[in-house]
Design a protein around this nucleic acid. Structure first.
Lengths: 156, 156
DNA sequence: CGCCGATGGTTGAACGCTCAATTAAACCGC
DNA sequence: GCGGTTTAATTGAGCGTTCAACCATCGGCG
């Protein structure tokens, strides 16, 4: 407070706007492709992916929320939709009566398996194919640094 | 079709997930800060910024949509809200009877001026302060490459 | 044991975005 | 200057997210 604002210089401005444009365009494109080809938004796809990788294809709601970087509320709503679609089912947690497990159904797994190749192709085409190997490496380091730096003021 | 999927190798996987986590966390954080401090989502802030930079603080709806990377429909809905808040006003375009101009009001400008320092500080803290100058430069090149690569399959 | 703050999860309302349909005016070719 | 196509912008329905409020259970501590 009282301190002068450290405005962005022209280079920073340019970087920030390019980042905004690029990440938005990338996400929008992948989201639209996934919606078109698999009938689900990217966020839901990610939930199914995480479940498919978990032992027993099941996870506690909270862990799933953390893994997908979403709020508990969001995941709760999403789980309701995914359950209605028959892609997941909920089970009571045996060790904590408050807890719920999200379980990937066979149908959910099949849907995911059908959607994955197209989505991966999209990620490749829109992201990796556009960058040099060095840039991919730079992007990884930058992203990991940022992710690290932002943890602690997370989504809830 | 019929071609084997080119799956992501472990490094690419790691890069992709780090990017997802980081960009989501960054956007969520800035969005939440802006909502808390200025009562508007980041998308609306961007609209006001673009208008403030335009000659006469006014832009055609289409140009504004392009500048902010949003669909016409989205901008139309957003403009309705911004107008209701008294931050912008609409005028008929003198040269094209179909056209509408979005005009930033004095009140809108004042709101933007009040919100800007806090937001810029946020961008600085959450993005630039975490990266080395070299990384900032890398991020700019990567983002510009991606933005370039994605144009043509844009939002509509 | 009995209370009390913390944790796990859900719910409903309000909001923003997407998609498809709609209206109106401009542009184009003849 | 008349039809047909394209472009500008809006609309409404449906979906996903957020936020705050809520209920239930857990864990600790006196």
């Amino acid at each position: 407070m009282g301190v002068m604002t450290r405005w962005l210089d022209p280079d920073e401005q340019r970087t920030w706007r390019a980042f905004l444009t690029a990440s938005r365009a990338l996400m929008d494109t992948l989201d639209r492709e996934l919606q078109r080809d698999a009938g689900m938004p990217h966020a839901y796809y990610e939930i199914l992916v995480r479940l498919s990788e978990a032992p027993g294809r099941r996870l506690r709601m909270s862990d799933l929320a953390d893994a997908t970087g979403s709020s508990r509320s969001r995941l709760s709503h999403a789980a309701a939709r995914l359950e209605a679609a028959g892609w997941i089912r909920r089970e009571d947690c045996p060790t904590d009566r408050r807890g719920q497990l999200a379980v990937l159904t066979d149908e959910g797994f099949a849907t995911l398996a059908a959607a994955a190749p197209g989505h991966v192709e999209g990620v490749r085409r829109h992201l990796f194919d556009a960058l040099s190997p060095a840039q991919v490496d730079q992007l990884r380091r930058i992203s990991e640094t940022l992710a690290d730096h932002l943890t602690g003021s997370g989504p809830n």
